[in-house]
Nucleic acid binder design. Structure first.
Lengths: 201, 201
DNA sequence: TCCCGACTGGACGTGGCAGTCCAGCCTATG
DNA sequence: CATAGGCTGGACTGCCACGTCCAGTCGGGA
């Protein structure tokens, strides 16, 4: 993988996206390398050419892809939590995203297949969580600066709790198919932020 | 499986517990039927005699076992959330349990291996969540009756949010190894319950 | 005591899937 | 236009885990 020509990069990308798509549709357990090859019109040698680590490496790359998508799907709202209205829009966006996703969580699914929590896999998720939490904390701090949230509240802790609620809500949705827990976590989380007695409302 | 003699029941139990233990130690992906047989001093024919559905059926049985354990490990506190002190003890118990468990969640692990969310598997988790949430809701209602929590709060929703926070906290712990999110979710969740302006404190 | 059915051991078949290999093609570059 | 090295096809290997099968033992009820 010293040099990648334009063509090579395209092939690699095709494999990666095809893998991600097939996993989204069928789950990781039911996704073989041959499935991916058939779907992307590529051959074994190509797959191992671009992902020398084989299945493991490909899965990790898919995990990175999906992790990026998680945050992208929340933009631009997530990056601009500067009013209660923005928070509400973000909340709706998150619920809608996961409702649409249904009972498949590609990231969780991929993660649990990666050999006993490979360091690389852990890193992907940890980074996602850190980034996500940082965005939420920034939003909290912004609201504090605007006098809308009690300045005594720890933004990091609040963001951590909110994030945990989201993750759990989604996890529960995977089994129950309902987004009630996700919505409850978000709604009560936001309600708690507001208990910092804003001047108005 | 029409009749089970005492001996037969013992063998079945031995296989089940051996499987659960091996999965706890090595993860589902690295657990083969042969591993379990070796560990429990049983043979293929026995395993398929007691679990005609093979690996799938055995895994589901393990899932049930682990699901029961989750709630058992929170007793007696979970069933008696009748004072703030009881809630705090319960909170500590939960954190301790998952801290001890470390980066392995047998239930989540087993679940994600079961064929694209088998109805049976979903049922196990759904029932666990329902039961868990019901206990929490009962605790909330009890505190409301005692005048310690705002009666306007919806116990079901509060319990759902709390439960989501726990699940997410544990999930995050699987990747990060830290219980900070779990604790944040529990602490802020309980803090929110208390915002119902108790007469004292 | 007899006998049926539950129980057990372990050899065996089988399929499927990750990963290897090599021969040949394409494409940038000098 | 030549050539080196990236790129591609697909047959092949090796493995291993699941599940089957059958022969044989045990155990409890009549």
């Amino acid at each position: 993988m010293r040099q990648l020509t334009r063509k090579g990069a395209a092939t690699r990308q095709r494999i990666l996206e095809g893998a991600a798509l097939h996993i989204r549709e069928h789950g990781v357990a039911d996704t073989t390398l041959d499935d991916i090859l058939a779907r992307t019109s590529t051959s074994k040698s190509q797959l191992f050419h671009y992902f020398p680590g084989g299945r493991e490496e490909l899965l990790l790359a898919v995990a990175r892809l999906e992790a990026d998508r998680v945050l992208e799907d929340q933009q631009p709202q997530l990056g601009d939590l500067t009013s209660w209205d923005a928070w509400r829009q973000w909340r709706d966006r998150v619920v809608e995203r996961y409702r649409a996703q249904g009972s498949q969580c590609p990231l969780n699914s991929v993660m649990s297949q990666l050999r006993g929590n490979t360091p690389g896999a852990q890193a992907v998720v940890t980074e996602l969580m850190n980034h996500w939490q940082a965005e939420l904390a920034a939003g909290v701090r912004h609201m504090q600066a605007a006098g809308e949230i009690d300045p005594g509240l720890d933004p990091g802790q609040a963001a951590a709790a909110l994030l945990a609620g989201i993750q759990g809500g989604v996890l529960i949705q995977l089994s129950t198919g309902r987004t009630t827990h996700l919505e409850a976590a978000l709604d009560l989380g936001l309600a708690y932020l507001r208990t910092g007695r804003p001047p108005s409302s």
